[in-house]
Design a protein around this nucleic acid. Structure first.
Lengths: 258, 258
DNA sequence: TCAAAAGTGTTACTAATACACCCATGT
DNA sequence: ACATGGGTGTATTAGTAACACTTTTGA
């Protein structure tokens, strides 16, 4: 979308309806860095309003396709593990003042009847990304796309803080039966990295020695090589997931349980 | 809704919009009887079209409220354990021919532009009910509301068979950390009843003796009294769940994990 | 008193936990 | 050589699985 012109076209409701009414998608993009889970937030241009990257569903695309497109359009991220986790439908979850503020900054005064002020149901997706590989870029609505620590998020617009909470719950649950590390860690990593990730997601401490055995017993990891860290101790092995699962385009119908 | 007149009002789109656009709700109502999981299906009047009880979301109600209202309106069921499990958004999930057939029977020829022929996202809820206590009644769209065995469902309209499959998956998962028996069994039941329920949901056989110990060790069950069955064997104890959990109105924000 | 189903006990095995010990490396 | 963190071994405990045994009931 090329800046202001694109913005206006996006918002027009005189031309043929391009989006489904009353439905939005919000993505909780999670990364892992420095022992912390991070969430990707957009800041709306010239405001102090932070939001999850979200958007609307085109007439011809599925929810999953929409989620991928929205994430790409709004952050530049592509080929990412995305999973639908919950749909948020509180009638009071949005407030118009926020939208007006966002638009006012761009010099756009929308009429009260504009579709943007209707009620929206939002389908929540969470995304897991390799923090080190990803370089989000803000779109025309935003002047910043940055990572924030999950434990210390700023207040977000609408019910986005709740959406993040729910996403984390879903992630914790999935940790029990899916190798989420594949998506949150670089191609190769140390056992300590993996353990730190698990501890962060679960919010508990784990015993180093037993964690190692447990992980290796799952036959998901393959030992690669020794790392020379230049640190004054034994260099750890590097590992890689053997099942390069969830490459992309994971249809939600092949969800958790199938 | 009182028969044809209500039907016409329901379908009118000239008066102020009563429902959110492009959004529907479908409920997979599960009961347990005779060692089988049953699904409640509606048959549309004078057709052989079977469907899950579903409907649309009013402007002012939340998704959860809508699900409860829809279930009550379409089947008479109230005060039921309902849980959102997935949102279905394939653009091809509906087909208009089905809708036209349903309407044609009632002598209603809707214009192509009617909102019923737009694309719909459907939020799936599953409900767990005590089969013995529940007496579903069909509404004005349907001439039958009956139970069908989960393993032998007739072909359903749209993607409703897939919705049922996904509901079952979600139920299986929840069995691991929630006492779903509370909702699917009568107030009191025998250990054999409970075991049969678990075996049916999980699709596996369990060892009677170990199942009993496991269940009792969870401290969820309270022994009530002996049943005099008149059978030629020891009468089983009756049990009751001590935590009468999930009475009703369970907000989805207090979902699985909170 | 016998068959059928409910309930308890016992043992073997497997997995989770906790911690002791050994290994490699750069200062 | 030793401090530091990585990796393995092992004892203890808890949990599962399998099956033998006892109890209650009506025919």
């Amino acid at each position: 979308m090329e800046s202001r012109k694109g913005l206006i076209r996006f918002l027009s409701d005189t031309e043929e309806k391009q989006f489904l009414s009353n439905i939005s998608i919000d993505c909780v993009v999670l990364g892992f860095h420095d022992g912390h889970l991070k969430v990707l937030l957009l800041r709306f241009t010239e405001t102090d309003l932070y939001a999850l990257p979200g958007g609307f569903v085109r007439q011809e695309e599925s929810l999953d396709e929409a989620a991928y497109r929205i994430l790409a359009e709004r952050t530049g991220l592509q080929n990412i593990y995305l999973r639908q986790f919950h749909t948020f439908g509180d009638p009071a979850r949005r407030n118009d003042a926020t939208h007006r503020q966002i638009m006012a900054v761009r010099g756009l005064a929308l009429p009260d009847s504009h579709w943007l002020f209707e009620r929206f149901i939002s389908v929540g997706y969470y995304a897991l990304v390799d923090f080190s590989e990803v370089h989000p870029k803000p779109d025309d609505f935003s002047d910043a796309a940055d990572w924030y620590e999950l434990e210390a998020l700023p207040p977000l617009v609408f019910d986005h803080n709740q959406i993040v909470d729910k996403a984390l719950s879903a992630l914790r649950l999935s940790l029990e039966y899916a190798p989420v590390g594949v998506n949150l860690l670089p191609e190769v990593f140390t056992m300590a990295d993996l353990q730190q990730l698990y501890e962060t997601i679960l919010g508990t401490r784990l015993l180093r020695t037993n964690f190692q055995r447990k992980m290796l017993s799952l036959n998901l990891l393959e030992r690669v090589d020794k790392k020379r860290t230049g640190k004054a101790h034994k260099a750890p092995y590097l590992y890689r997931f053997v099942t390069r699962t969830f490459p992309d385009g994971a249809d939600s119908s092949s969800g958790f349980l199938d």
